[in-house]
Design a protein around this nucleic acid. Structure first.
Length: 354
DNA sequence: GAAACGTGGGT
DNA sequence: TACCCAAGTTT
């Protein structure tokens, strides 16, 4: 496009990688899943695990989950042999639960081929849960392959560097092309991680710290002024508010938990029984029985906000109940409930001690 | 291409 | 408070 051609004239794309790598060598964040200085290469299992956890998720949120997973399942074979329920429970709270389902499917696929991950981008791309980004990232970081790694950080840095102002997501093609022009043949993994660190610490979304940026001199967005306006994004739709009921049925110190269907919202997770609320509509399938109100649980999902009426059983023996498991209330925090249900459980428990 | 799919933190 | 955002993938 026009902007790209103009940008190409303003500086040599091949000059970017050396500057970025030199910056990375002294400014890299120390993260648990990164190889330490001096180490040859990181374990592909750990690179893959961290990359899946980091999809749409902050570094701070991933930390404790990464520690737990690597402690309990040190190898991909260990993870492949785990019970589904244990893995889903360990993922609870991290969100986007399809990632956990795909994580297990991927671990088992890798175990079935001898425990070794494919060492090419194309081979990795075939595995469950590895899309364009993750396949490129693992190929580059774990196997030293030259791959064009484009995440939201790289998109932002490159959009500014080349002053690409075509709104996302349509503008992704131009950004990817430009990213390919600045990606080096050697050290593509370090380059990718350096670009992500730059995006996370210097070239941030709101208030970029351009005075600290190693790429400032060649940055067309900086030269134009207002680099923070890039990348341009399409307007977002308003979120609807949905309502429903969530049920707390307790007998002898144990509460009834169900297992949600394998696909869709919170798929495969333990949960409290509910009345069938979804992104599409309010709950309509009320559980028969005598109930009393236990308060309101509010929770925001990506594409809708939810208001749940907490229903407490008055005569639990008389309620017609769905199939499930009776879980000790004392250890409810260890059940691996998604946050919306964990909130409901905390509301019940807090109501007793206050 | 658009929609579905979680959550916690920053401003 | 309300909105934006984060190492995206799947359908």
């Amino acid at each position: 496009m026009q902007a790209r051609e103009e940008a190409a004239k303003s500086f040599d794309p091949e000059a970017i990688a050396p500057l970025l790598l030199a910056w990375y060598d002294t400014n890299a964040r120390r993260l648990p899943w990164r190889r330490l200085p001096g180490e040859e290469r990181q374990d592909p299992y750990r690179v893959w695990l961290s990359e899946v956890m980091l999809q749409q998720t902050t570094v701070a949120a991933v930390g404790p989950y990464y520690s737990k997973f690597t402690e309990v399942w040190p190898t991909v074979g260990d993870l492949a042999a785990a019970d589904d329920a244990d893995v889903m429970a360990a993922w609870a709270g991290l969100g986007y639960y399809a990632r956990a389902r795909n994580l297990l499917a991927c671990a088992r696929a890798v175990a079935a081929r001898g425990g070794n991950f494919p060492d090419t981008e194309a081979g990795l791309r075939e595995l469950p849960g590895l899309g364009e980004y993750t396949a490129a990232a693992v190929a580059a970081i774990a196997f030293g392959r030259r791959a064009v790694v484009v995440d939201a950080n790289v998109e932002r840095v490159v959009a500014r560097l080349f002053a690409i102002d075509e709104p996302l997501p349509a503008g992704k093609a131009a950004i990817r092309f430009a990213a390919g022009q600045v990606t080096p043949e050697e050290r593509a993994g370090d380059f990718a991680q350096g670009m992500m660190d730059l995006g996370a610490t210097i070239c941030t979304a709101r208030s970029p710290r351009c005075m600290l940026c190693p790429l400032r001199e060649g940055c067309r967005g900086y030269a134009q002024g207002s680099p923070e306006r890039l990348p341009v994004k399409a307007a977002k739709k308003a979120k609807p508010v949905r309502t429903g009921r969530v049920y707390w049925v307790e007998r002898d110190g144990k509460v009834l938990l169900v297992r949600r269907p394998g696909r869709g919202m919170l798929g495969g997770m333990r949960a409290l029984p509910d009345d069938g609320w979804s992104a599409k509509g309010d709950g309509a399938d009320a559980l028969a029985g005598d109930w009393r109100a236990g308060g309101i649980v509010r929770h925001g999902f990506t594409h809708f906000d939810l208001e749940l009426q907490l229903m407490l059983s008055v005569q639990p023996q008389a309620v017609s109940l769905p199939q499930g498991e009776w879980w000790p209330v004392e250890t409810i925090e260890a059940a691996g409930l998604p946050t919306v249900f964990a909130k409901a459980a905390r509301l019940v428990v807090a109501g007793r001690t206050d």
